[in-house]
């Protein structure tokens, strides 16, 4: 490697905007998750940059990741992707038994396999569905919330079991919120198309409905180091109600959403996510709900509420998250 000082600072060719790329990737493929979109954006960055040295590239990735993080309101999920990407490169560069340490090879691999990563991420979802379908037994009523694609895939898989002649008849109670009914709509319609009876309820009805429910399955945007989840606003209260009613609360989530953040309560997210959910107004305002992106607002559910994380590697206890992360970032 050349000494850094001798190399003229090379920047990006043309006008590459990582934030715009990230948004475009998310829009192009509605099935993609935020961490994977961030990884994809970094892959594009890697393809377009003419940085040659290791240091230059790493520095570029780092600054661009930080820039992306700054410009996205809810940055914790994408942070899972950018950190995984950086850590992967770092671990590959370290010459060891498990790595050749050849930077160019690593770069080539990442640049040329962008679609593969997306494909793997989607496969992970399918695997979660396969593992998760076992949770749903005949006669169960499952409560879910938000438009999680993993949960949708899981429920559809369980419905397929029913169609394949299995004896699983289950019902779904779907907590629907007006602000983002569109994403729920797709899941609900696909379930009804498979013959699963779905009840749509309002968030205020959850406590009332909980007695009928056998289990709660939700998705997550990110899983933090202690095993707690960052998920759509309203998940936390459902988790609390489920625990009060002694109903198991499962989280279906891919391992690439594990993120090295240690969040203990809602307040801890504020440095990363400024949601402006609670606004104190001295005077009467016409519409008390904030205009800011409530559609994407999230909350944090502590690990003690979570019975198990259903990942592509099978059901995991929450304690396994920290172990995986520590191992990953100590390489």
């Amino acid at each position: 490697m050349d000494s850094v000082g001798n190399v003229p600072p090379k920047t990006l060719t043309g006008t590459f905007d990582i934030v715009e790329t990230y948004h475009r990737i998310l829009e192009d493929d509605p099935e993609i998750t935020m961490p994977v979109a961030a990884i994809e954006a970094l892959v594009e960055l890697l393809a377009q940059t003419d940085a040659v040295t290791v240091y230059e590239t790493l520095d570029l990735i780092q600054t661009q990741s930080a820039f992306l993080k700054m410009n996205i309101p809810n940055s914790i999920p994408l942070q899972a992707g950018t950190e995984l990407f950086q850590q992967y490169i770092l671990s590959c560069l370290k010459p060891s038994k498990t790595s050749s340490g050849n930077f160019e090879a690593v770069r080539q691999h990442l640049v040329s396999n962008g679609r593969l990563f997306v494909h793997r991420a989607k496969n992970a979802r399918d695997m979660i569905a396969r593992h998760g379908q076992n949770y749903i037994r005949d006669g169960n009523i499952v409560l879910t919330h938000g438009g999680s694609r993993v949960v949708g895939a899981l429920l559809r898989k369980a419905a397929d079991v029913k169609r394949a002649g299995g004896n699983v008849r289950f019902k779904v109670i779907y907590v629907v919120k007006d602000q983002r009914s569109i994403e729920c709509r797709t899941v609900i319609d696909s379930l009804r198309a498979k013959g699963i009876p779905v009840a749509e309820i309002d968030e205020g009805t959850v406590a009332y409905a909980m007695r009928k429910v056998d289990m709660v399955i939700v998705g997550a945007e990110g899983v933090v180091e202690n095993g707690g989840i960052i998920s759509r606003l309203g998940t936390f209260q459902i988790a609390q109600l489920a625990m009060a009613a002694k109903k198991p609360f499962y989280v279906a989530v891919e391992t690439h959403k594990f993120v090295r953040e240690f969040i203990l309560s809602q307040d801890d997210m504020e440095s990363d996510i400024d949601q402006k959910i609670i606004r104190f107004e001295p005077d009467y305002v016409e519409d008390p709900t904030p205009k800011t992106p409530i559609r994407n607002a999230v909350d944090f559910t502590p690990p003690k509420y979570i019975a198990a994380l259903i990942t592509e590697n099978g059901p995991n206890v929450v304690a396994a998250v920290s172990e995986q992360l520590i191992f990953l970032y100590s390489v």
């Binding site: 995984l84 990407f85 590959c92 498990t98 050749s100 690593v106 396994a320 990953l328």
Partner: peptide, 25 residues
């Protein structure tokens, strides 16, 4: 690698099939 769970997070990006994945130790 004889490590069942830990490394699985790299799966997403890993270059599976590289010779460096031969069993070690």
């Amino acid at each position: 690698n004889n490590v069942p769970v830990q490394q699985s997070m790299f799966n997403l990006l890993s270059a599976t099939g590289s010779p460096n994945l031969t069993p070690s130790g």
